[in-house]
């Protein structure tokens, strides 16, 4: 594959992301997020990072979005809610845009320099990746695993206490 396709896919991902964060409807935003993640996956494939691309599709675009979908299903998607959401966004976007612009403009100026001389992207060897993750980076991998376990325990805890306390709150 080629750099050109990777850049094009990443541009698509950026466009989808910008649209995603400005949608009023959570469903639209989620679909655009999905599009963005899929485009990123395409960019990974284009850069010959096949393993990363596969993982991106399976975990990110698959599992993570699926979790989101379950939650989004519970969201109020009525027209009034949309209008409320739009009003909130309209009242709040200026300062964040200004602050983000502060950072973006210098970065845009930083594109220049260097020549378009790169060869084709090098393919990352998955075997090498495994050796890296479970060899030199063993501790980091363990830490990520630990973090995932902590997340799991946390979710379990939050989920368990949800029922009775919600009922209690409902009565209040």
């Amino acid at each position: 594959m080629s750099w050109g396709f990777a850049i094009w896919a990443a541009t698509l991902a950026l466009a989808a992301a910008v649209l995603s964060v400005t949608r009023a409807s959570a469903v639209h935003a989620l679909l655009l997020l999905l599009a963005s993640l899929l485009a990123l996956g395409a960019a990974f494939f284009a850069m010959s990072a096949n393993f990363a691309g596969v993982i991106q599709l399976l975990i990110y675009a698959g599992a993570v979005v699926a979790v989101f979908v379950f939650v989004v299903m519970t969201v109020d998607a009525s027209e009034t809610a949309m209008a409320h959401e739009r009003k909130l966004l309209r009242s709040a976007w200026r300062w964040p845009a200004l602050f983000v612009g502060l950072s973006v403009i210098p970065i845009l100026f930083g594109i220049g320099g260097g020549a378009m001389d790169a060869g084709a992207p090098a393919a990352a060897d998955t075997r090498e990746l495994g050796l890296l993750l479970f060899g030199d980076w063993g501790v980091a991998t363990e830490l990520v695993a630990l973090m995932l376990i902590a997340g799991m325990i946390g979710v379990r805890h939050l989920g368990r206490s949800l029922g009775p306390r919600l009922r209690e709150r409902g009565r209040e």
Partner: peptide
């Protein structure tokens, strides 16, 4: 978050 963004912007500049 906005404070962080502002600080980040200043640092980048």
């Amino acid at each position: 978050v906005m404070a962080i963004a502002f600080g980040l912007g200043v640092l980048v500049i």
